[in-house]
Amino acid sequence: MIVVFMCEHCGQGAANTAGVLRMEYDPRISIVPVPCAGRVGPREVLTAINNSAEAVSVVGCCFGACHYSNANMVTLRKMKIMKKFLQEMGYSMDCVTMYTSRAAEGDTALGDFEDVAAKADGEDCLGAARVE
């Protein structure tokens, strides 16, 4: 399972737009709605991974467009620390990602999903490690 936290503004907005247009995305993706990307932190990432997520991602509003005083930019730093953590543990940085999307444009969310799914299949990713 790939856990994607999506903020209720741009993130879920873009996913809804994609849904209305019947765009398809990787079935492994499981969307967890959150009020804001700022709601997601290391605890959510580690909980997902410890419960066998292959990859964890956060999708928030565009930089500068956060609905809660730039909380997405705060999460950006936390996710970078988690990326570095995975790398130091010998896993690919790709297993934790963070994106932005635009509510009116479904393909921005789809682009994010495709990238997350492609990266989750890479070498040294969490999914591959679990299969071994």
């Binding site: 930089f63 990326k83 990602t97 994106y99 932005t100 999307s101 921005t108 990238d115």
Partner: peptide, 14 residues
């Protein structure tokens, strides 16, 4: 300072 980049599908990412 944190490294960000533009995606090919025109949004920003970490």
């Amino acid at each position: 300072d944190v490294h960000t980049e533009a995606s090919e599908w025109t949004t920003d990412m970490l």
